[in-house]
Design a protein around this nucleic acid. Sequence first.
DNA 1: ATATGCCTCCGTCTCGAGTCGGAGTTGAAA
DNA 2: TTTCAACTCCGACTCGAGACGGAGGCATAT
Lengths: 214, 214
Amino acid sequence: MDKVRVMIVDDHEMVRLGIKSYLLTEDKIDFLGEASGGKEAAELARKTQPEVILMDLLMEGGTGIEATKEIMSFLPQCRIIILTSYYDDEQVFPALEAGAHSYILKTSSATAILTAIYKAAKGESVIEPQVANKMMTKFRPKEKRLHEDLTAREMDVLQCLGDGLTNQEIAEVLYIGVKTVKTHVSNILSKLELTDRTQAAIYANRNGLLRKST
Amino acid sequence: MDKVRVMIVDDHEMVRLGIKSYLLTEDKIDFLGEASGGKEAAELARKTQPEVILMDLLMEGGTGIEATKEIMSFLPQCRIIILTSYYDDEQVFPALEAGAHSYILKTSSATAILTAIYKAAKGESVIEPQVANKMMTKFRPKEKRLHEDLTAREMDVLQCLGDGLTNQEIAEVLYIGVKTVKTHVSNILSKLELTDRTQAAIYANRNGLLRKST
DNA sequence: ATATGCCTCCGTCTCGAGTCGGAGTTGAAA
DNA sequence: TTTCAACTCCGACTCGAGACGGAGGCATAT
């Protein structure tokens, strides 16, 4: 069997150093190079055509998700292993949707990561048990992303609710009548299956649906 | 000048590898060893008497805070540099109170970390600008921890508010009358300088004041 | 041309939320 | 013992919230 062609993407120089120093001691690994950001990663992947990419999720200037999508678009046979620090990351799903192949934690031992690389090269997925649990809990259809049924205007109102504004205040912010605000609020509560504005405010806060100007 | 005696504490094997591989190339660094947890760190520190310790904040089985406290108790002249992944960490203050000397992010370059080590050895502190900003925002007296004026019972009610319960539901949960709940809610709004339960619910959610059973 | 969906607004009605003032109980501190 | 803070409860009052039904304007799709 040939060497496995691997590249690393991570904005933490230390993490790159750590992985690299380990990979270089393995004679079945062909270390192609490293990148510190999404754009750089795509370029490097285009040049070196890796079989496996170790990709950090959280990077400054664009997440690993976008990089994953881009790379998958021109290198679909490439196996991308997501490396992340926390298992309660909200980005597990987007990552897997983007085409990530495995999802492992940085707390894993170096040997576990090596194993993941070899498995990925053979087409096998590696998902941490902790991450798998999160996935299962997220798969309940109800609580998933209920607010995507909202219209644009309703989203505006919901964001105001998340800031604790009264109907009157919302009306002033959005330049509409109080009655109109009430209509929107009623529709929001109905669509989100909630009973009052307080629960809507909590929903907005827990799902990060807030105005930027806050 | 003598070599700087340094040890590493981190439960991520890769991070230890990365830092170690870098430190070993520096001839002004005397690398004493590494530990993966708080207890192990304290033992190693006792044996090797390091001048500088690079300590991860988030570790399985006890945070770096406790380890920092323990080490400072028998090695007060030791400079402990906290290494963390995120700057919005709630543990900045506890860490500094525990005796941490510097607070830098893992996103820092390897050279920046080296600089921090040398500065720490000379007694200088290094605080990331992002962390410093967080500190400043936390220091504003108003918005600081306004909810610590609340009584125990009021905290109970606030936690229920944070879950979106009505007065009636809160009364049932806490085995008290609705009127009593109203009294508590009024006092809470007054103490937190808010106008209605919705804002209280937002406050509770943004400050992590929620019931564990949720 | 008709239909559909969204945004806007109106009036009415009910009900929970919140304020205000007052009051009894307990337990701990002075 | 007295004092004080916290928890509890009451009644009466005001007001915003939310439900419900109805309606017109406007854009897009069919």
